[in-house]
Design a protein around this nucleic acid. Structure first.
Length: 661
RNA sequence: GCCGGGUUAGCUCAGUGGUAGAGCAACGCACUUGUAAUGCGUAGGUCGUGGGUUCAAUCCCCACACCCGGCUCCA
């Protein structure tokens, strides 16, 4: 019997009978591996477990509990979803169904523009489980384009995909479905169901099952809002029931820290219907946190040689015509107000006004870099369906700065900005940063090749100088210049885009900004836009979710709550409150008209960092019982001691306990 | 803006073609309590807004506002 030898990822080689597959290889290594294997790679390409191996191949086994393995499970589950829908809904057209983070989706078009209901979802899930129980093998085949078009004669979307791929017009999503060669690969898992797919897939439907259909939503075909609206079914799928349960549990935890829910529960702010969509009012407790955020921001900007400016909320339309924003973004601005002396708009950004300040007198190179800073209120008419609590809002406040500098100063300025940004974000408990460099989109940009090259290089240099890793987002820049975006990860690992540094070659041009150089000649400055929080509102929303509402003591609206054990201790409690207030803390008293346990509970659910309980012993010793959020009770702490400790914690910006449960 | 689902007491939510209920919160009384829910009682709602169908609408239909989940968009 002839043998072949294959190379494994650890560098070892393994002999197998000729004709062996990856499944055979896995079985020869161990039964657990065989059970966990869902696909493999041969010379780097992902393939099905059943593919026969050849002598000298480099082979790896993809197991269900790896990222690649889960991807295969999810994609295969998506196929079964399509199969179930096609079986249950006569005349349904199926389109594409990729694996995504944590799961998969599949897009369908139902006859007569029908839509799926929750009951439908339950029925579909039931059918999927039947298909999985039936243990149908996924069988791959390659057919010609002509044959494929015949197979999918009743599926117009599939035909469109096939035609796009073969005509070379395909994009990434098409290729994932089909592959990109002259032939088309199909996966058939019963006589009644076949789908276009590049694969790989699990060997049979019985390998699936730890999944759940999550929700149904509308989605445009090809993401084109002028195209047809399809019905998208989202699901999640995992390698085990345990993993599935953990995922569902994570979703529940994320719901608990939803900033809209917590903002309401903690009485921070609200979105009154009477105000209109996307507009918030800040209640006293939210306003305290906001003020602390703003105070901190102002202090840091003052230390960083920024100059503070103020500009109005309204401007004559001429200003936005000059800046070019009216041409590009009129739809996203609140409608114009016609006045006696012209047309006015709410400002959707502060930059044009800062340019006016720069241009208000002649500028010297000696003034550069000139850093103008404003907590600027702007209004953008975000489309109704896009509003999302504080994260997408119509009236908001940017911690906005525009820095005017020379080309030579650009790299240093950007580099120190990166330090500045990270230092500020760390104060708010963010330590995990990701950087993205967005480069020019040649189809949609202003400015010379030379200046784009220079600016992109300056951004790149600043990133390199910090030794941080970054992703390039090709063509993702604004039309006026390249940018760096900074994402942070929160306490439960979710990613948020917060800060941005953008180069702008457009506004200095349009406003004809100039400074006098050391050579006595006029030069055009480079303009940098940058925001650290992005918007105060959005940042606050992210902070609420990051801390799950349990703000660190320096930010907490109520830092201490004092509870007298009984009425007799009220006077002493008041004196403790007085001392704490004198020390500058935000403190409340909760009188003894309810049981102590109840009042402790109330304080805990309000997420107050420190509960102080005072009774007879404390009056005798001038002490307090300290019950810290997320910590152990400590009795007989002297008031002076507690003040010293809390003062140190607040001053050092100790970030308290981040609830990562 | 598009596709779905919603809007009932301060909050979280039940419910019905014959004008409504729970828990928590509020208020009152009793209890005076040493570390996460004391007991009893009281009050509180034009059932999002405006039309329509009906003898009768919180419930069915239409429009609008706002919210939620997605899509698209995000200077």
């Amino acid at each position: 019997m002839s043998e072949i030898s294959v190379l494994l990822p650890d560098g070892s080689s393994r002999a197998l009978p000729a004709g062996s597959s990856i499944a055979d290889l896995a079985a020869s290594i161990g039964s657990r591996l065989a059970k966990a294997a869902v696909a493999g790679t041969v010379n780097g390409a992902e393939v099905d477990l059943t593919v026969p191996l050849f002598d000298g191949a480099t082979v790896s086994i993809i197991t269900a509990d790896s990222d690649a393995g889960r991807h295969v499970l999810r994609h295969s589950t998506a196929h079964v979803l399509a199969q179930a829908v096609v079986q249950l809904f006569d005349g349904a057209h199926f389109t594409i169904g990729p694996a995504i983070e944590d799961g998969f989706y599949y897009d369908f078009a139902l006859p007569n523009n029908k839509t799926f209901s929750d009951d439908d979802l339950a029925a579909i899930e039931k059918r999927m489980r039947e298909i999985m129980k039936a243990n149908q093998p996924f069988t791959r085949s390659e057919v010609s384009v002509k044959e494929a078009l015949a197979v999918f004669a009743t599926q117009p979307y599939k035909c469109e995909i096939i035609e796009r791929v073969t005509s070379g017009a395909a994009d990434g999503s098409d290729v994932a479905e089909v592959g990109s060669s002259d032939s088309v690969s199909l996966y058939r898992n019963s006589d009644s169901f076949v789908d276009l797919c590049r694969g790989p897939h699990v060997p049979s439907t019985s390998r699936l099952g730890h999944f759940s259909l999550m929700k149904v939503a509308g989605a445009y075909w090809r993401g084109n809002e002028k195209g047809p609206m399809l019905q998208r079914i989202y699901g999640t799928a995992w390698e085990s029931d345990t993993a599935l349960k953990e995922h569902l549990h994570r979703l529940e935890e994320a719901t608990k820290r939803d900033h809209r829910r917590l903002a309401n529960e903690l009485d921070l702010l609200s979105f009154p219907t009477e105000l209109g969509g996307g507009l918030a009012v800040w209640h006293p407790k939210g306003a305290i946190v906001r003020k602390l955020m703003e105070d901190y921001s102002r202090q840091r900007h003052q230390d960083g040689d920024y100059q503070f400016v103020y500009t109005p909320h309204l401007a004559n339309a001429n200003l936005f015509a000059k800046s070019g924003h009216l041409d590009f973004y009129a739809d996203g601005m609140y409608p114009p107000m016609e006045m006696d002396n012209g047309t006015y708009y709410m400002k959707p950004m502060n930059c044009p006004m800062h340019c006016l300040i720069f241009d208000s007198r002649q500028r010297s190179y000696r003034e550069l870099p000139l850093r103008l800073f404003e907590l600027g209120n702007v209004y953008r008419y975000e489309r109704a369906g896009t509003l999302h609590g504080l994260l997408r809002i119509r009236g908001f406040t940017q911690d906005d700065s525009h820095i005017y500098c020379t080309e030579e100063q650009m790299a240093d300025e950007i580099s120190s900005l990166l330090d500045f940004i990270m230092s500020v974000l760390r104060r708010f408990g963010f330590n995990d940063f990701e950087f993205n460099l967005s480069t020019r989109n040649p189809e949609k940009s202003v400015g010379s090749d030379e200046i784009w090259e220079k600016a992109t290089e300056a951004l790149r240099e600043a990133l390199d100088r910090h030794g941080v890793e970054y992703k390039i987002k090709e063509g993702d820049a604004a039309f006026y210049g390249p940018k760096i975006d900074i994402d942070v990860r929160d306490a439960i690992g979710r990613k948020w885009q917060l800060s941005t540094i953008q180069c702008d070659f457009n506004l200095p041009e349009r406003f004809e900004l100039e400074y006098i150089g050391s050579d006595g000649a006029r030069h055009r400055p480079i303009m940098l836009h940058r925001a650290l929080f992005g918007s105060i509102e959005r940042f606050f929303g992210v902070l609420i979710e990051h801390y799950a509402g349990a703000f660190p003591s320096w930010l907490s609206p109520e830092q201490v709550r004092v509870l007298p054990v009984a009425l007799a201790h009220d006077e002493y409690a008041q004196s403790v409150v007085k001392q704490l207030k004198k020390a500058g803390f935000r403190v409340d008293i909760d009188h003894a008209d309810e049981q102590l346990g109840k009042r402790i509970r109330n304080a805990k659910t309000s997420k107050v960092p420190y509960v102080l309980v005072v009774g007879d012993d404390d009056i005798a010793h001038q002490s307090v019982g300290v019950n810290p959020r997320g910590g152990e009770v400590e009795r007989d702490v002297s008031v002076a001691d507690f003040i010293t400790r809390l003062a140190a914690e607040v001053a050092e910006g100790q970030l308290g306990d981040i609830d990562v449960s």
